[in-house]
Amino acid sequence: MSLISLLIVAAALIGIGLYGAFSQQSFVMLMMGLELILNGVMLAAVGFWAMTGAGAPEGQLLTIIVMAVMAIEMAMGFALVVAVYRGKQADMTESLSGFKH
């Protein structure tokens, strides 16, 4: 387990996440893509903290912040889905052409 192998795994996760975020039509699947990207980011952050950061606590802090961001992203994402669904009965990105009803 070296930093290089860790970062390659993280890069793979980010790549797959990007593919998902760009290709999926459903809002929820799109969010899953974003989460996967953040998963890779967290892995890279912890990898850097453990291998090059000499245990600086800010490295762990960054991961905690990413987790908070994920929670916020999820909550906001679902709120948007519900709000859009209420108004338009749509859970696909194509059915929205603007932010207004």
Partner: peptide, 22 residues
């Protein structure tokens, strides 16, 4: 996705990171 993977792995492989473990 593939471009991002290749670019980031490139950084991982060719990047020069100090080795300062916990």
């Amino acid at each position: 996705g593939i471009a991002a993977f290749v670019a980031l792995s490139g950084v991982a492989v060719f990047g020069d990171f100090p080795s300062r473990p916990v």
